[in-house]
Design a protein around this nucleic acid. Structure first.
Lengths: 181, 181
DNA sequence: CTGAACATGTAATAAGTTACATGATTCC
DNA sequence: GGAATCATGTAACTTATTACATGTTCAG
C-alpha cells in the first residue's frame, strides 16, 4: 500500500511520548504497536533521516560503552504541530481489511469443499492464540483495569480483544454447523 | 505493502467463476470484493498481461459496436491449479489491521482530550453507514437467507456484519461513557 | 569467549496510488 | 448532441518487503 505515510505519524507519535532510537522504534512494532501496525527497520531508518531533514525530529548521539553510538531522536515543536494536525484531521477512509483467510474463503463455494474445514480450524487456532496474547497484554499493561494516562492504548486493546472474541466465536459456530451437516 | 501478490489470486479466483474483462475486474473491487480488498485499474491491467505471460490466463477479443475491442479473459488449467494450490496452503499470517482511526486513538492519552469526542462520533457514523450497506448487500445477494452456491461470499458478509455491529456497539458504549464523565 | 541482543544502515525488488492519456458506446 | 459509463493503457512516484552488510555490547 502506498497510502499517505502513516508511518511518519506513528514515529512522531512515539517520539512525542519518549525520546527513542531507531532500534527502539523498530522494537515498538514488535510489541505494543505491533498489535495493529507493522514496519521493518529498513523502512524506519531512512524515514527518520527524512523527518530530520524536514525538521520534525532531531537527534543527539549517545555513546554506549567504548564506541557504540546511538542516535536518540526527539520530536521538535514543528513535529508536535504536524502530529497534532494529523490527529485533528478527519479519518473518513474505512480501509479494506485485507485478511488473506477471508479472501480465500470468498472462493470456497460449497460446505463440502475439503479445503474448508482445515482452513477454519487453522484460523480458529490462530485467532484464539491472538486473543490470549491480547488478554495477557491487557493484564500486564493495565493490571488495575484502568487506563491511567494511556486511554488510547487501553481502548485499542479492549477493541482488539472484542474483535478477536467475536472472530473466534464466529469460527467456532461455523465449525460446529459444518460438522453436523 | 509488498505482500506476496494476493491480487494475482483474486484475479484467478474471479476468473474461475466467470470470464471477465479488466474493466469487469476493476468493477468487482468497487462492489462485492471491495468490502474486503481494493485495487485500481492501473494495477490490474499490467497484472493481467503478466498472468497471461505466465499462461495462467488467456484472452479473446470481443468486438462491441463498430470498433471497440474488449479483452475477455479466461483462466487456464494451469491457472486453476495455481489457484487451488493457494487455497490449500496454510494462511498463518494474521496481518496487522491498519485502521487509521485506531492508530490515532493510540496517541490520545486522556478522556478530556478535545479531539477524542469528534473522532468517536465521526467513526460511529462511518461504521454505522458501513453496517447498513453490508446489511443491504446481504439482503440483496442472499434474499432467502441461504448461501446457495456462494457459501464463501455469504460467510464473509456475515462476518463483516458481525464485525461492524461489534465495532459500532463499542463506539456507542465509549461515547456514552465519556459523555457522562 | 560466545551467542543473543543491541544498533544502524543500504540495495534490490515488489506492490500500490495518483495522475496522465485516449477513445467508444449507450442512454437520454 | 452531450454526459455517463465502458474500456484500456502508461508514467511517475511512494510505500513496503526481503535481503545484504557491518559492527558493538552484555550476560552467562
Amino acid at each position: 500500500m502506498a497510502q499517505r505515510n502513516q508511518l511518519k505519524f506513528i514515529i512522531l507519535g512515539l517520539l512525542s511520548e519518549n525520546d527513542l532510537t531507531g532500534y527502539d522504534i523498530t522494537k515498538a512494532f514488535e510489541s505494543d504497536i505491533g498489535e495493529f501496525w507493522s514496519a521493518n527497520h529498513s523502512q524506519i531508518y531512512p524515514l527518520l533521516k527524512r523527518l530530520e531533514d524536514e525538521q520534525l525530529i532531531s537527534h543527539k548521539l549517545e555513546v554506549v560503552g567504548e564506541k557504540l553510538e546511538k542516535k536518540l531522536y526527539s520530536i521538535t515543536q514543528s513535529g508536535k504541530e504536524v502530529l497534532r494536525q494529523w490527529l485533528s484531521e478527519p479519518t473518513p477512509e474505512l480501509s479494506a481489511t485485507k485478511d488473506e483467510f477471508i479472501l480465500k474463503l470468498y472462493f470456497i463455494h460449497t460446505a463440502d469443499d475439503p479445503l474448508l474445514m482445515p482452513m477454519l480450524t487453522e484460523q480458529h487456532q490462530l485467532h484464539e492464540a491472538k486473543l490470549h496474547h491480547l488478554q495477557e497484554q491487557m493484564a500486564k499493561k493495565f493490571p488495575d483495569h484502568t487506563s491511567q494516562n494511556n486511554l488510547g492504548h487501553f481502548l485499542i486493546l479492549q477493541h482488539a480483544i472484542q474483535r478477536e472474541t467475536r472472530y473466534t466465536a464466529w469460527l467456532v459456530d461455523l465449525i460446529e454447523k459444518i460438522k453436523t451437516d
